[in-house]
């Protein structure tokens, strides 16, 4: 995973709360067996509308999505994160993220930064009044800068550290393999096993 410490890019105002992962990427695109190539799938229903924000310049070149409350609700599909990244987004700002989406983002190097709703509203106004305004997100200082506005964002320490180091979760866990083996030796024998199969 590529480390991310700071990112600067065009902000895209998405004035919509409760953006679910079905909307970010409809189920029909989930039949692929690859991890890349989902850029066409991002918001595919909304992108049919010429007025949709990503169909307008300069927003189509945006890399920081500024969304309403409760972003990424619903289905656990990590494809939602892949689609956002494949399209070119590196950061999503919202005042509240769905848990699974936020977790998936952290695994894939998409920064899901939680920003107060009043700051989101301010950023929306700036981006709408001055399309093309760039937003800088800095993990070191945990701040979002948009024009003259500097706002703090929240992210858990562990995810922040992993993003800044570009670390692979599985590799980190396997450093503790002895602990896993030790735990396994204490599991009660009656705990279910899928094999051998009983039906």
């Amino acid at each position: 995973m590529e480390p991310i410490i700071t990112h600067t890019g065009i902000g895209v105002p998405l004035r919509q709360s409760n953006v679910d992962t079905d909307t970010i990427i409809p189920a029909v695109y989930l039949k692929r067996i690859t991890r890349t190539g989902f850029e066409d799938a991002l918001f595919s229903a909304w992108r049919k509308d010429p007025e949709f924000i990503l169909n307008k310049e300069p927003f189509s070149r945006g890399s920081v999505l500024v969304a309403g409350r409760d972003f990424g609700t619903g289905s656990s599909r990590e494809h939602a994160v892949w689609a956002l990244k494949d399209y070119g987004f590196r950061v999503v700002l919202s005042s509240r993220f769905a848990d699974i989406f936020r977790g998936n983002s952290g695994k894939q190097g998409l920064l899901a930064a939680e920003v107060a709703q009043e700051d989101i509203e301010q950023i929306w106004k700036i981006l709408e009044n001055h399309p093309g305004t760039e937003i800088t997100v800095d993990l070191e200082s945990r701040t979002v800068t948009c024009d003259t506005l500097v706002a703090p964002f929240t992210i858990d320490d562990y995810t922040r550290w992993r993003l800044m180091e570009g670390l692979d979760d599985i590799g980190l866990t396997l450093r503790h393999e002895e602990d896993i083996t030790a735990y396994e030796s204490t599991r009660p024998s009656w705990k279910p096993r899928t094999l051998p199969a009983r039906t």
Binding site: E78, D169, I170, T173, E177
Partner: peptide
């Protein structure tokens, strides 16, 4: 998510 699926498979 799928990254966690892989994580559980591996660990």
């Amino acid at each position: 998510g799928t990254s966690e699926v892989e994580h559980v498979m591996a660990t």
